[in-house]
Design a protein around this nucleic acid. Sequence first.
DNA 1: CCCGGCGATTTACACTGTGTAAAGCACGCT
DNA 2: AGCGTGCTTTACACAGTGTAAATCGCCGGG
Lengths: 199, 199
Amino acid sequence: MSTDAGSYGDPETRSRILAVTWDLVADQGSSLKLSEVAERAGVSRQAVYLHFGDRNNLLLALVNHMDETLDLGASLAHVQAAPTGAELLERAMQLNTDFWTAVCPVAQVLEAAQHDDEALGAAWRDRMGLRQAAFSMMIQRIADLQELAAEWSIEEASALLYAVAHFDTWRELTHQLRWTDDHYVEAMTLLLRRALLVA
Amino acid sequence: MSTDAGSYGDPETRSRILAVTWDLVADQGSSLKLSEVAERAGVSRQAVYLHFGDRNNLLLALVNHMDETLDLGASLAHVQAAPTGAELLERAMQLNTDFWTAVCPVAQVLEAAQHDDEALGAAWRDRMGLRQAAFSMMIQRIADLQELAAEWSIEEASALLYAVAHFDTWRELTHQLRWTDDHYVEAMTLLLRRALLVA
DNA sequence: CCCGGCGATTTACACTGTGTAAAGCACGCT
DNA sequence: AGCGTGCTTTACACAGTGTAAATCGCCGGG
């Protein structure tokens, strides 16, 4: 599963490089320079190549690093444990905004790189597949609670929930239109509640 | 308004270069090379620089070129002329999928470039501002028809409609999950109808 | 204590793509 | 004829990626 092909060198150095890369990606997007990464991490440029092979591989490692540090399991369980459909949707949207807030800079770059680099694109789509699965389970739970509106099949509702909760929508609302996280959660919850749940 | 700073040379050549650029962006994303653009357009690499100044300016010209050829006015009028809210939403989603289909390759690149290049980002956000305005007018129309659900203010409904109809959502559904355009229109219309309109 | 090996550094170089500069060529125009 | 415009050719400077090889420091085992 995990292709840690280049498990080389001091792991401390490795994660220091990753951390710096994260920061640089955050405020420079995909135009980060490996020389700058190296400098800020206090290592030589070659050390970066020794650890990660090349540029895309570094970004790939960043993606893997991402969900190691994130640990969504607990949060997802909390969402699933919601007593009602409405409550579940609200918790889902809360988790969603937390997730995108944490991942935003990387997401920006990765969505772009999807087309350029095969491996990177695959890694990203893989993560998104997990998201899809998570949302699918939520819809399943709502159906079990007898709260899914009759017009929706589980597949359609899952897909829509996943798609509507995706990055662009979140970013346009919270960044472009300056909505607060709470506002996003509130409005999206209302939208989804009306759209998906029985009246 | 329009910064056609480099209106230089034979307009035919210019639009041939733009056309080729469009194609190359379509299947290479942002990693297109100016040398390849030139070659395919049957001109020298320098001709491209003479016409457009630099790489980002070429992409910028591509954005401007985009909505010249698109001409959304008529389609928007057709949406606005819908007799009912439900019909309006359906027409809006139909237009939306047409729009993203046409613009998809460029959208991919532009969303990415937003962070890298100031001018490009501004140009893209400008276009998105127009979209916002268009959706806002639709919600206004729905409100005029007395069909907007009481829970929504015009601002909130507009913003949500705009955000939910954005690129990622469309792409995930139609490209990743392989929905047909019709399926997208149908499902999104139902979602929005339930979410926004009076029961 | 010396030796090996590993992590990392330094230096150097090849390659690609961007962007600039200048001279030259072809064609049409008055 | 002379001139300008649109483009070509050639050349070069520069930045960033990726590779290769020699070297250094350090730590652990014989």
